[in-house]
Simulated scan of single mutants.
Amino acid sequence: MPPDLTFRSARVSEREALEALQWRASLNNPGDREALLAHPDAIHIPPDQLAGGLVFVAESGGAIVGFAALVSRSDGDSELDALFVEPGLWRRGYGKALLLHCAQAARDRGSAALHVVGNRHAEAFYRSCGFELVGAAETRFGSGLLMRMRL
């Protein structure tokens, strides 16, 4: 884990800052850029999701370096609904540390697995974190990968 990295639940008042971080990260990914520019409404963190305590912020040196969100599934498992890290900090372990924090939070909530619908460009990252490919899903922006990490 990167030094001095801490996690906490996001505050409702941080919604705009987190959405701005999501924009920076998403636009820095060529696989997402065109679709997001065509559909800017896709970047929106519901205030009730923030108020529910399942949006987690990663901080380093007193600054937000990333965030992730969990949602409950009807089968009792959890789904990773968001995972974004400041683009200048990619490939330094922040994303994996944030994902593992979410996995622990899901485990603490009684989930047997953590699920994610990922893009092809994120497959290697999720596999390196312990996810396995279990299928495909159609999303608003095309086909995505259904992946699962057993907890």
Rank of each mutant, 00 (worst) to 15 (best):
L83T: 10
H115G: 02
A122K: 08
A113I: 02
R15E: 02
D41V: 12
G62Q: 03
S72P: 02
H101K: 15
E138H: 11
N28W: 01
R11S: 11
L114P: 11
T139A: 11
R120M: 02
S143L: 15
L27G: 09
A58G: 14
G142K: 13
P40I: 06
R120P: 00
S74P: 13
A35N: 11
I45F: 10
P3V: 06
L80W: 03
L21R: 03
G142F: 14
G76F: 00
R127P: 00
L98T: 07
L36R: 12
V12S: 13
Q22C: 14
P40V: 06
L99W: 07
R8S: 01
D75R: 10
L114K: 04
S128W: 00
V85T: 14
G66C: 08
F125T: 05
L37P: 12
W90F: 14
L5S: 11
N28L: 02
W23T: 07
S13W: 03
D41T: 11
F141M: 10
A105T: 00
S9K: 15
E59H: 12
S9M: 12
P2V: 13
G130I: 12
Y94F: 15
D75N: 15
R127I: 13
E123H: 08
C102N: 10
R150M: 06
P30S: 06
S128L: 07
D81A: 15
A25T: 04
L50E: 04
I64T: 11
R92G: 02
E138V: 14
D75Y: 08
V65D: 02
F67T: 03
R24H: 04
S74W: 00
Q22F: 09
K96C: 09
A68K: 03
R150D: 05
E138T: 12
M1E: 04
V65Y: 08
G52Q: 04
L145Q: 09
C129M: 03
A112N: 06
A68F: 01
G76A: 05
D41I: 09
A35D: 08
A69F: 02
C102F: 06
L89E: 04
V134K: 15
W90N: 10
L36P: 06
Y126D: 01
T6E: 09
R120C: 00
L50T: 11
G31T: 03
A20E: 10
G76H: 01
D48G: 12
G142C: 08
R8H: 04
I64R: 14
N28K: 06
G144C: 06
S9C: 14
F56K: 03
I64Q: 08
V71N: 04
V134P: 07
M147N: 07
N28G: 14
M1W: 04
F125H: 07
E86Q: 13
D48H: 15
N28C: 09
L133F: 05
Q104E: 12
Y94L: 14
S9R: 15
A97C: 09
V57E: 05
W23D: 05
G62R: 05
E14M: 13
H121P: 03
R109P: 00
S78A: 13
V71C: 05
S13M: 09
L70T: 00
L83R: 09
G66L: 05
R11C: 08
W90E: 05
D41S: 15
E79Y: 02
